[in-house]
Design a protein around this nucleic acid. Structure first.
Lengths: 195, 195
DNA sequence: AGACCATTGGAACGATCGTTACAAGATGTG
DNA sequence: CACATCTTGTAACGATCGTTCCAATGGTCT
């Protein structure tokens, strides 16, 4: 049996995150989590707490993994707002193209399951999405967009991010996904007609 | 008790559709379906079959309800491709603004739960999404877009549709949703730089 | 070596899952 | 009125759900 932990905690959390990512909160049963992580029930509960807590830790693990990639892509300097959008969406495309992780995006899958999440889970998801939005908006400002344009482009780029995840889950080809991302990046930088 | 059916079959199906729409397939338990429809277990199974069958019938009921609205909006005539996009997304915005139906869109919720669906459910969802895409593409061609532009715009408009559903599920304001839709409609009609 | 403690796998809990079976009651037909 | 037919509510099924408990084990410390 055991005296000291026989597994890598962070690696186990990474695998649990993949289970939630692939199956969504509802279908991520404890059995699937134990199978996916290789841990026994006792180890799972003893290390991470109950399912809701493990889910929130998986969300944070997700942010810890992918937020730095977005930050790096957004760091710039970028010549135009459209370059910011393109850089951001490229990170998303790269993640979706990674065959070692599930389709779509954990945040998007979780967002569509909002009614199935408890209050803490909903708050965590919402906070992470808002964080990405703010990060985008700031980078767009830094790239020369005015306040209104930055807010709008940040929202639309976030929306494109979500749409890529949905289409990926539904089995759309990576060509189709690239087309969507390219179109979003292409139209982003063009001057907006003022009302 | 009963001798002849004591409920309206189509109304019950409409309510079952709302349960799947709100909760997603996994969280739409038989108890929630019986509560949402007002039917007993016996009536549910006797009328609609098992859960997977009822889910597919709910998807078809969804298409039967909203496809005509999209068709009508796309029928035109439209002066430009961007008018087609705007008309399509307006139908989506109207549906999302309807307080009598759940947030988001049944197709999008179902798409993100793909791994939780059986083969028939996955095929039905995918076929319905492909149908919308084809419908959009044809309307864009009719509005003067060339083949390449119609294909790209149809895909991007479908993507925007999905993103609106996700953002709605996550609790974004209707103002934000309208902003996303307006931006998609605005950039759609503009001439694309050819490679 | 022996006491202490964290960790492990597995048994077991009550609750809920989707589904089926069935008796009781209401309707349509003779 | 009797009969067949259909519908309805409920009980019950085995399976799985999330969670807790516990004896057995191996490492750590004196």
């Amino acid at each position: 049996m055991a005296g000291r932990k026989q597994f890598d905690v962070d690696e186990a959390l990474r695998r649990a995150m993949h289970v939630f990512w692939r199956w969504g909160y509802s279908e991520a049963s404890i059995d699937r989590l134990t199978e996916g992580t290789g841990l026994g029930r006792g180890s799972l509960y003893g290390t991470f707490g109950d399912k809701s807590t493990l889910f929130r830790k998986s969300l944070q693990r997700y942010a810890q993994t992918y937020h730095p990639l977005y930050e790096q892509a957004l760091a710039g300097p970028h010549s135009s707002p459209s370059a910011v959008v393109a850089a951001y969406l490229q990170v998303t495309l790269n993640r979706i193209a990674d065959p070692t992780v599930p389709d779509g995006c954990l945040l998007t899958v979780s967002a569509t399951q909002f009614p199935a999440l408890d209050a803490e889970g909903q708050a965590t998801v919402r906070a992470m999405i808002d964080g990405l939005r703010a990060m985008l908006q700031q980078a767009l400002r830094a790239a020369g967009a005015d306040e209104r344009e930055a807010a709008e482009l940040a929202l639309c780029t976030l929306a494109t991010n979500k749409s890529l995840a949905v289409l990926s889950r539904a089995g759309f080809s990576s060509d189709d996904l690239a087309t969507v991302a390219a179109a979003a990046g292409r139209t982003a930088g063009r001057p907006l007609p003022l009302p």
